[in-house]
Design a protein around this nucleic acid. Structure first.
Lengths: 171, 171
DNA sequence: AAATTATGTCAGCGATGTTGACATAAATAT
DNA sequence: ATATTTATGTCAACATCGCTGACATAATTT
């Protein structure tokens, strides 16, 4: 049943990449992600907010009119988890809910002016950090960064991520 | 006070990278990191372990004889946080402590055989994922991935990460 | 002998995730 | 029309993993 060209890609991978390179890759992900999140984390700590609040603000700001179900799908959390994040954001006047026009069961999510301002304040240092890294690394490196991260996802996740990220090709 | 050549690098960055590219970069980090952690997360859930346990096992396995202070430094958490992770790992027979030879206040950390086996079981699918992505993306892309993540760190963090990752250059 | 260092531990708090159960309103299916 | 399904909200309980503050012990350094 196994065609010759099907010979284990795991074996081929092992042949070309030694363990220390893979370990280094994992450690880069750990240290890199920590750096990536540290700027907004500091701002979030002013209020009793965490990363989850930033993520919600980010994706609502990106797709105004997103439904609760849509946001749940993107974030990959339970509705109970989301509620604990969304409720304070609504109470604090950062997120607004409007009843769906075509489907009045839906609560469509929008950032208020304050929400938009806060989201930008959170994202600004993170984007500056990315911009600095992208510029110093150069366009080919950015394309490599993008392709490795995309290829690290499962097909399903990659499809979802692509749908969210959209055409905005990185390089 | 501002020299002409000091003209805001933020402005230059903004000139070359539009906002949608930076947003896409941030989203790639989010989705990519989620994919990166999902395999070990499933295994960790068998016991009452989380990512922090994996990280501790990883870095102890990488630098056997690491001191508690050394591990605290790498992980960037408080000793109270680490204790909650380390104590179960010791109780479960995955990590062993030995009194330091030169300084007998130190508790040097080692993986037991079981600990080594468990760490490998946790890391295997993660490394396979990385290997697949690296191979499909190609060596230049991997170098780009590495350089962008490194440049995303502050100088201090980059120095620390480089010290941990070591010579094992990625590409 | 005194101060500092490495480590451990107790107690409490906050953010973020989980499962399970139940409620309501609106849309859809029979 | 009635029944079912869907979208959302909410209550309760629990686990992980970060934090601060306080205190203790043993070993090293001053």
């Amino acid at each position: 049943m196994t065609a010759p060209e099907m010979s284990s890609s795991v074996a081929r991978d092992a042949a070309m990449l030694n363990e220390s390179m893979l370990r280094a890759g994992a450690e880069l992900m750990f240290f890199g992600y920590r750096s990536f999140t540290q700027d907004p984390d500091k701002i979030l700590a002013e209020r009793d907010y965490g990363r989850a609040h930033h993520r919600a603000l980010h994706f609502i700001g990106r797709q105004p009119g997103l439904s609760v179900a849509g946001l749940l799908d993107i974030l990959g959390v339970t509705k109970q988890s989301l509620a604990r994040v969304l409720k304070p954001l609504i109470d604090d006047g950062f997120v607004e809910q409007r009843v769906g026009e075509s489907d009045r069961r839906q609560r469509l999510l929008f950032l208020t002016e304050d929400g938009q301002a806060f989201e930008e304040r959170l994202s600004a240092p993170q984007r500056a950090r990315l911009a600095r890294a992208f510029n110093q690394a150069g366009p080919e490196a950015v394309e490599g960064f993008r392709s490795v991260l995309e290829l690290m996802m499962d097909d399903e996740q990659r499809a979802q991520a692509s749908a969210v990220i959209g055409e905005a090709r990185l390089p």
